[in-house]
Design a protein around this nucleic acid. Sequence first.
DNA 1: ATAATATATTAGTATATACTCATACAATCA
DNA 2: TGATTGTATGAGTATATACTAATATATTAT
Lengths: 123, 123
Amino acid sequence: MTSERRGGGSRGGKPAREFDDQVLELVAERFQVLAEPMRLRILNQLRGGEMSVGALVDATGGRQANISRHLSALLAQGIVNRRKEGVFAYYRIEDPKIFDLCELVCDSLQARLTARQHALGGR
Amino acid sequence: MTSERRGGGSRGGKPAREFDDQVLELVAERFQVLAEPMRLRILNQLRGGEMSVGALVDATGGRQANISRHLSALLAQGIVNRRKEGVFAYYRIEDPKIFDLCELVCDSLQARLTARQHALGGR
DNA sequence: ATAATATATTAGTATATACTCATACAATCA
DNA sequence: TGATTGTATGAGTATATACTAATATATTAT
């Protein structure tokens, strides 16, 4: 990210959007974490309850290092939680709202598809 | 993106996740478009009704080329719509569900913050 | 025709990040 | 103690993308 002039204060013209921008950055960050198919796969697996890293590696078909990194990202965002037991690390969903997000997105995608079908004269 | 073995069919072990993966990629794509502060700023502006590119440039403080690109991305995802009138191009929200998404995210973020405050002994 | 304006696009650059392998770290067991 | 196993991390690479300036395209006015 480079310049792109941020408003410096209440002076200097331009509408007041100072505070809102910080929120937008946080929101964008949250979306960013959900913008990876592999992370969504992991979350999808965790719907059934907590799983160890190894179990997620098996279930998703990813590499251990990669899964571990994705889990760290999800953990940093407070989307999952971690429980250590012996050598194992069990992850579980901490913020179930993300599934609502996914459902909303699916609704949108589906609506767009059916709209397209109609546009093509679909039944 | 590189290898990461995709299941080839119903044979070869591993649970059946073939179809789901395609959906997850679409969902991730949608999240990706929403994962940019500037695009969220644009969408936020469009809440008040359709706006021309130039008006969005003024309102967001971005460069014309950049705003135009972001609008293209939003248009390609069916999130906004475009109306051409003379020399102007007016964009407007096509899929208002995205605001529900943003609200859900805000709820999550807020919940996480208050949880942290409590953890720190906040009142 | 030329000029002026609004928008889109091309080309180039810088940064972010998803992935890999290899290795470090930590806990259990011989 | 060392060996084994599960997880995390360091280092390197490849790709995606957000940004910029400059230019192309299109519409209206002179």
